[in-house]
Amino acid sequence: MSEKKTERREFLFTASYAVGAVGVGAVIWPLVDQMNPDASVKALASTEVDVSSVELGKAITVLWRGKPVFIKRRTPEEIVEARAVKMEDLKDPQKDEDRAKDPEWLVMLGVCTHLGCVPLNDKGDYNGWFCPCHGSHYDTSGRIRKGPAPTNMEIPKYEFVNSNTIIIG
């Protein structure tokens, strides 16, 4: 067999393999992507909450994307306590001002950043939240102070539509 012929043959085989591989890849993607959140799940991304009935010092829990969201109406003492903390004392330094747009309202994802349990309100060494699973303590701003959790509880995207209604997401 001449050299030229061999070359052409090898090109043909390489091309077949390459094109075939592209096809296999293109087929695998839909099979993987079908497990991603579907259109109806994505559409539920925002939740509207009426907070008019929440009393000072109390918190409500609402469901957003299948996870609990804590909406706490903080007392002036709690706000002062949250704002007085020195940044050096924090494991995940973050100002309370950055976490609560309106100091009276703290809206955060009620999910412990350790392994996803739901912390208990008004418990723990810092008057905030305490996670019963592995003992993480959060302060009145939802920041991690003690225990295995690596970061503060997450603040979701939210806004006040009016003084009584919050849209989360």
Binding site: R9, L12, F13, A15, S16, V19, G20, V22, G23, A26
Partner: peptide, 16 residues
């Protein structure tokens, strides 16, 4: 279109 192209390539590979 993709399948046709691949079929042609495989056809000639097969001939070879």
């Amino acid at each position: 279109l993709y399948l046709i192209i691949l079929t042609i390539l495989v056809y000639f590979s097969m001939k070879k």
